[in-house]
């Protein structure tokens, strides 16, 4: 018989070993019975849930989705209003847009030209060496 002091002095591993040694044996077939009980409980819950969900819910959601899609596709789009009433101002804006496009293109062309020049340099050096 161990005293309380002895037990307190035991390490965790020793305590675990002691507990494993003195554990009462589980009744035969307990694990199997527990599994079966849990499975039966799960099946009951599923059956209840199925009973509670009416069959028309998927059909109704499908119909709602179809109605929404039809509405969006068939309703006339909100009409857009011209930003300018004056054709001269509109023309100026188009000109500005084309200028922006050209500016961005110029940057691209310039970068390509620079890249071309730096690519030509090794060829130039190689040609010099060969001569």
């Amino acid at each position: 018989m161990k005293t309380l002091e002895d037990i307190e002095n035991l390490s965790l591993e020793e305590l675990e070993q002691q507990a494993a040694r003195t554990a009462p044996p589980a009744p035969e077939g307990l694990q199997k019975r527990l599994r079966m009980a849990l499975a039966a409980d799960g099946a009951l819950r599923d059956a209840d849930a199925r009973k509670r969900r009416p069959r028309w819910v998927p059909y109704a959601s499908l119909a709602a989705a179809a109605a929404a899609a039809t509405l969006v596709l068939t309703l006339p789009q909100r009409g857009l209003r011209d930003t300018f009433d004056d054709p001269y101002l509109a023309y100026a804006e188009v000109e500005k847009a084309f200028q922006t496009i050209s500016d961005k293109m110029s940057t691209g062309v310039e970068l390509a030209r620079e890249a071309g020049q730096s690519a030509e340099l090794p060829q130039y050096v190689l040609n010099k060496i060969q001569k």
Partner: peptide, 11 residues
């Protein structure tokens, strides 16, 4: 900015 086909025709 939005410019409509009608405005383009006008320009």
């Amino acid at each position: 900015v939005y410019i409509s086909p009608a405005m383009f025709r006008l320009i």
